[in-house]
Computed example of a mutant assay.
Amino acid sequence: MFEFQKLVTHLESIEYARRSLFAVMTAERLAPFFRRYASLLPDGVEVLDGGLDYVWSRISTEKLGADQREGSLILSQIEHLIPPEDSSELFSAQADDAASSLMYAIRSLYSPDPREAAWAAQRAYDTVDNFVNNLPDSTGTISKGYIDHSPLLNDELETQRADFALAQSADLTELVKLRSHSGQNGEELLGKFLSLIKRG
Rank of each mutant, 00 (worst) to 15 (best):
I59L: 00
R29S: 10
L40R: 04
D67I: 10
L30E: 09
G44C: 03
S57D: 14
L21Q: 01
A66D: 15
P42F: 00
A66Y: 14
D53N: 13
F34L: 15
V47K: 10
E28W: 14
E62P: 04
P42S: 01
S57P: 03
E62Q: 15
L41G: 01
T26D: 09
E62W: 12
P32D: 03
E46H: 14
Y37N: 00
I59M: 00
T26Q: 07
G51L: 13
S57E: 14
F22Y: 14
I59K: 00
R58T: 11
D67M: 09
Y54K: 08
F34I: 11
S60W: 11
L21K: 02
R58P: 09
V45A: 06
A31W: 13
S57L: 10
G65D: 11
F22C: 07
R36D: 04
S57T: 15
A23V: 13
S60A: 08
G44E: 06
T26K: 06
A31P: 11
R58N: 15
M25Y: 03
P32M: 02
D43M: 09
F33R: 04
D49P: 05
V55G: 02
P42V: 00
D67A: 09
T61Q: 15
L40N: 03
A31H: 11
R29I: 11
D67T: 12
E46N: 10
Q68F: 14
L40C: 03
L41D: 02
V45S: 03
D67V: 11
A23F: 12
A66H: 12
F34S: 13
P42M: 01
G51T: 11
T61R: 15
M25F: 02
Y54G: 04
L40W: 03
R35H: 08
R35A: 05
D49Q: 11
R58K: 15
R29K: 12
G51A: 14
L48H: 07
F22A: 08
A66I: 13
A23H: 11
L41K: 05
D43R: 13
L52P: 06
V47D: 05
Y54D: 07
P42K: 00
G65Y: 14
R58Y: 13
K63W: 07
A66E: 15
L52G: 05
K63A: 12
L41N: 02
T61K: 15
L21I: 01
A27T: 12
L30S: 02
L64R: 05
L40F: 04
G44N: 04
S60Y: 10
E62V: 09
V24F: 06
G44Y: 08
S60I: 09
F33P: 02
S39I: 05
E28L: 06
A31E: 14
S39Y: 10
D43I: 12
L64E: 02
A23D: 08
R36E: 03
Y54V: 10
D67K: 11
V55R: 04
R58L: 10
V47L: 05
Y37L: 01
P42N: 01
F33C: 02
A23Q: 08
M25R: 07
T61S: 15
T61M: 15
R36M: 07
K63L: 13
A66V: 13
F22W: 11
G51R: 07
